[in-house]
């Protein structure tokens, strides 16, 4: 924990949901392993992208990091402090430093609160709990400046969420997340509910804010183009585990894990000529159920390069070089590539 550069450090995080059966006497009929041993760290000022297909546990990871979902096992360190050991009062103080931008701008805003009140709500809660001292007058001023900064006219403060477009609502969500002056923003698919034209506006806003306010991002998305644009480093998730992490450039130029390769080959290209010549890797089958008891590599059923070893042993994330980690036996040779 000695490294002061590391803002968020996640160690072997697991989130398992019980499957309950029966009406009166609930029996546990197994577990859904939504997140199954995820480790990563986020350095100050960087933006780490977490990508993967639907249901691979990206959002659950973010919720567990934010302590909104109870972790089954594993630890989340924020600025070197284990969040699971904090008292509820300490956790409340710590929450000021990591805020969430939610996926769905329609359900993340209370329809009965005005835009200004929504953005000011965190400040009012913390002022009410005497954790920060700020006068109502200053709250109003701060709200207006946040709205202005996020591209909303402060005159909209009296409007209700339903009077805004999806992009504007997401701006309200961003302004709310910024109101407490956080260091880390957990962006849970912040643009996937928006139109493509609006996506770029929101992404640019987030990018500007990152530079201006020195923010760190954990950016969750399933759109690889968005992540490539936004993130400096990318972690690829599959079935609750991270299979590859690398710089975004490295990952796009030299994907190593067979799953990452398949994922990248599925990104639509704007140029039809190069799209035609590109070799697409089409995976067979579906993602296995996260409730199945299994051994071996999570990707073994669908992997084009599957080996005998993959069926019995699970590969762990290991260094290819200091900027590139992959969990695959294909690269498990004694002479590591540098």
């Amino acid at each position: 924990m000695g490294n002061p550069d590391i803002l968020l450090d996640v160690k072997d995080l697991k989130v398992h949901f019980p499957i309950e059966k029966g009406i009166l006497l609930k029996k546990n009929a197994g577990w859904i392993r939504a997140v199954d041993g995820v480790s990563f760290s986020v350095r100050k000022g960087e933006s780490l992208g977490l990508v993967g297909e639907s249901g691979c546990g990206k959002s659950t990871t973010a919720m567990a990091v934010a302590q909104l979902e109870a972790a089954t096992a594993g630890k989340v360190f924020f600025e070197g402090r284990d969040l699971s050991l904090l008292s509820s009062e300490e956790l409340r103080r710590a929450r000021m430093n990591f805020q969430i931008v939610f996926q769905d701008p329609y359900s993340s805003l209370n329809p009965r609160m005005r835009a200004g009140d929504l953005i000011a709500e965190p400040l009012r809660i913390y002022a009410g709990k005497k954790i920060i001292s700020i006068s109502e007058n200053d709250i109003q001023k701060k709200t207006a400046s946040l709205m202005d900064r996020c591209g909303l006219s402060p005159s909209f403060a009296d409007r209700y969420p339903h009077e805004f477009s999806g992009g504007q609502r997401q701006r309200i969500g961003i302004a709310r997340a910024l109101s407490l002056g956080p260091k880390l923003i957990l962006a849970d698919e912040p643009v996937s509910a928006l139109d493509v034209s609006i996506q770029s506006q929101i992404l640019n806003l987030l990018k500007d804010l990152q530079q201006e306010l020195d923010l760190t991002f954990l950016f969750i998305a399933h759109d690889l183009a968005v992540v490539e644009y936004f993130c400096s480093r990318i972690a690829v998730m599959y079935l609750g585990q991270i299979v590859e992490t690398a710089d975004s450039q490295t990952l796009y130029q030299q994907p190593m894990h067979p799953y990452t390769r398949a994922l990248l080959s599925a990104v639509p290209l704007p140029d039809p000529k190069s799209a035609r010549t590109r070799k697409r890797i089409i995976l067979k089958g579906d993602v296995p159920s996260p409730s199945a008891v299994r051994s071996g590599c999570p990707f073994m059923e669908r992997c084009p390069d599957v080996m005998e070893r993959c069926r019995v042993e699970a590969p762990v994330l290991s260094d290819l070089n200091e900027k590139h980690q992959v969990a695959c036996f294909l690269y498990d040779s004694p002479s590591k590539q540098i």
Partner: peptide, 17 residues
């Protein structure tokens, strides 16, 4: 199950709030 409840929790709100 609305996200605004989660948002409130991440903004430090307690159960009764």
């Amino acid at each position: 199950s609305n996200e605004f409840v989660r948002a409130a929790r991440s903004n430090g709100a307690g159960d009764s709030y």
